[in-house]
Amino acid sequence: MLITCPYCGPRDVIEFTYQGDGNRARPEPASQNFEAWNAYVYDRLNPAGDHNEIWQHSGGCRAHLRVVRNTLTHEISSVTFVRGHHGSASRPEAEDRS
């Protein structure tokens, strides 16, 4: 499986670490809503089809990526930075020093 890191380009899955279901919503830190905490820690969607996942490019730029992956075909339809401020999804051009 290849994941196209918006920063590093297409890389083998071996460079990435799966960091869980991207649909989880963490309650506010002080929240006492136990149901919400339980859902966040344990409930997973496990769809047969497109799945919203978080992967870290741990063997590369270490950014966390939001990946939409089809669990039946492994087809990846979208990869974006989880954190907005990484800038554009295209790889920065090397400066021309010649």
């Binding site: 963490r26 950014a63 966390h64 989880v82």
Partner: peptide
């Protein structure tokens, strides 16, 4: 290290 990075990148950007 990954634990810290995850929280900084995903939970508390």
């Amino acid at each position: 290290m990954q634990h810290l990075e995850y929280f900084l990148d995903v939970i508390w950007p």
